[in-house]
Design a protein around this nucleic acid. Structure first.
Lengths: 232, 232
DNA sequence: TAGTGGTCTAGACCACATG
DNA sequence: ATGTGGTCTAGACCACTAC
């Protein structure tokens, strides 16, 4: 259970920063001072300070010293729920219903690159109540084996997550009023406010999939968090 | 311009991973092999591999070696736009209009803790067209000096960002239909789909502010990205 | 049990910004 | 000018675990 020394140094400083004992802008002890305090080599305190710097808690300036950084609001971590897991966590029964499946010509507006696309339309249910309608496109050039998969019970998203590695993703979140088919499939009146999530996924420069999901705004929301304590 | 050696090693491996030359699961060279390849000490390659590990690109297992990690779907980075900057980026003119300002009793549903709250209602404009209506609460116990601030031109958010350090934040995103006053202030018909963003901010356990913003769903969306390349 | 990463040392030289 | 962090070395011992 004995933590590495550099980790103990890091946590000690981190605790002082998060508690407010060392407010933003405060100068931290120099590496030389920390060497004495912890009776260790300079590389060891350097490792602790580097970790705090990488975490954004500390800023280091040559000749001036190390300082407690001001938190910046520029980004937060957004948890992307796996719908099946999320529904189960609520104690509800999850079901994916496939509605249609077709193969369409390449469309750069959906997925960059050439080759035909597999289109899968479906609805995610929680306790047999529609939670989200989904319209998904998958590059058959990037994922040829998906042509053989049946999506009667498993959703295309779950299958892709388990079988296809990706390196980059982008998410767009917006609000729209449910129209026609979407409203019908969600079993809500037209005009209902919906949370729209669009996700694009790539492996390197090759587009893999594009999906657009509509959630009933009253039933669903997304949560993002930011905290210097990254531990979950 | 000559990069540190550990940084060059890191980038070299990172490039091979991101390009797909080293797919997920691939075993990387051992530290000993990298020492030979780059003709350097072990601490130097260790620093490069540690950075990749901290970034989530590499997993290291004792006795087995270092491996290319599989990207995890669980979280993405959500860029939180500063509204004024975002509007300026679009080439539009930004303006904050304060509508009302009052002091209300403590309400744990808004901000945990005791003490009165300052409530500031206002509208963010882009080219004199309403972009978002904002309803903000600020703990006077946590930020007493805000009682003296005028919000005729600067928004409470911008003032807080510049003056009050925080350590934790939480964001909730949902879709709602604009009602009554919100629709009026947005200058949109009632029932318009709106993107709702609620943000709570803390310093340690002390709540600082709670804000609820409504954006016209047609005018605004949020974007999140995940990519092993964190540099923007 | 042998090879791997994890940690740590006691030095060194350098670049840099600030006092 | 000087003290600070940035980098790097050439070792060392240890813990863990896959072989």
């Amino acid at each position: 259970m004995t933590l590495p020394l550099h980790e103990r140094i890091r946590r000690g400083l981190e605790a002082d920063i998060l508690s407010g004992a060392l407010p933003p802008g405060t100068r931290l002890p120099t590496e030389a001072e920390l060497m004495v305090r912890y009776d260790c080599a300079r590389m060891t305190v350097s490792k602790a300070l580097s970790a705090l710097t990488a975490a954004g808690l500390v800023e280091r300036r040559k000749r001036a010293g190390s300082f407690v950084a001001r938190p910046r609001m520029h980004s937060m971590v957004l948890d992307i729920p796996d719908l099946a897991a999320e529904v189960a966590r609520r104690g509800q029964h999850y079901r994916y219903e496939m509605i249609d499946r077709s193969i369409i010509a390449a469309d750069p507006a959906l997925i960059a690159g050439k080759g035909e696309l597999l289109r899968v339309e479906g609805v995610h249910h929680a306790d047999d109540r529609p939670l989200a309608v989904e319209d998904r496109y998958i590059s058959l050039a990037a994922v040829p084996e998906i042509a053989e998969v049946e999506f009667t019970s498993i959703s295309p998203g779950a299958w892709l997550l388990a079988h296809v590695p990706w390196t980059e993703a982008e998410l767009r979140i917006a609000a729209v009023a449910a129209q026609g088919e979407v409203a019908l499939r969600l079993d809500r009146p037209a005009g209902t406010a919906c949370l729209t999530v669009e996700r694009r996924t790539w492996r390197g420069a090759e587009g893999i999939t594009f999906v657009r999901q509509h959630f009933d705004g009253n039933d669903y929301d997304l949560v993002a968090k930011f905290g210097p304590s990254r531990r979950d």
